[in-house]
């Protein structure tokens, strides 16, 4: 599903070039539930962004669903993301002027699907009662569940979540991970998420431990 071949990423700040990802090789299969852990600044977000086509590697190739994403134009990449990927962000990033229903419906409009059952999905995720509320009327945990629903509704093959639980208390965090796990089982979606919280890794099928731009441990359960 996801293949990284000898991926490097460096940032240039003025004259100083910092190498953030240093020769990463990685393969993630369809349906895997992967956690990327590692200290702050180790490059977790950078990797997720590159896989999602939001950022480009300095060197190396990234294949997502057999597509070399470096070969896609801006517009193609947009379409690719809309069709195949879902994103969940640390701070939810819901559209504030849209209700829960509209936030989810929006994704369907972008991919021109209209017949998905939003209510059923929200029911499963446990926030159906909030369907007509605006994001600022929800708690953090509820918002993140909406974000999970938004990422899932288009039935993407891959969902990337950058610290989806960092802004949640541990109970809500546990709940969000449970939902992600449940959805992964139901739709065989590939999940890759980053986290600081090692307590959340009990559910996962694979843990990648990152340190200083390199994978130092790759634990498959």
């Amino acid at each position: 599903m996801v293949i990284l071949k000898n991926v490097y990423k460096s940032y240039k700040t003025g004259e100083v070039v910092t190498e953030v990802i240093k020769g990463l090789n990685l393969e993630i299969k369809q349906g895997e539930f992967v956690a990327i852990i590692g200290p702050s600044g180790s490059g977790k977000s950078t990797i997720l962004n590159m896989i999602g086509g939001l950022d480009t590697p300095s060197k190396g190739d990234i294949f997502v669903d057999n597509q070399d994403i470096a070969k896609l134009s801006d517009a193609e990449l947009s379409k690719f993301r809309a069709k195949k990927l879902g994103f969940i962000f640390q701070d939810f990033n819901l559209i504030p002027v849209f209700t829960v229903r509209e936030n989810i419906k929006f994704v369907l409009d972008v991919i021109k699907h209209s017949n998905e059952d939003i209510e059923h999905l929200l029911q499963e995720i446990g926030i159906l009662e909030h369907i007509d509320k605006f994001p600022d009327q929800l708690s953090g945990g509820q918002k993140q569940r909406v974000a999970v629903a938004r990422a899932l509704v288009g039935k993407p093959k891959l969902i990337l979540a950058d610290e989806p639980t960092a802004n949640l208390d541990s109970k809500s965090a546990q709940k969000v991970i449970e939902i992600m796990k449940k959805m992964q089982k139901e739709f065989n979606t590939t999940f890759i998420f980053s986290t600081h919280d090692t307590r959340l890794t009990s559910e996962v099928s694979r843990i990648l431990e990152l340190e200083d731009g390199k994978i130092v441990r790759d634990i498959k359960k």
């Binding site: 517009a75 947009s78 379409k79 993301r81 994103f87 972008v110």
Partner: peptide, 16 residues
């Protein structure tokens, strides 16, 4: 800006 970033991540076309 953040909302725009989110829209782009979702794959919203530029024209939108």
């Amino acid at each position: 800006i953040k909302e725009i970033g989110t829209l782009k991540a979702i794959g919203t076309p530029k024209s939108f």
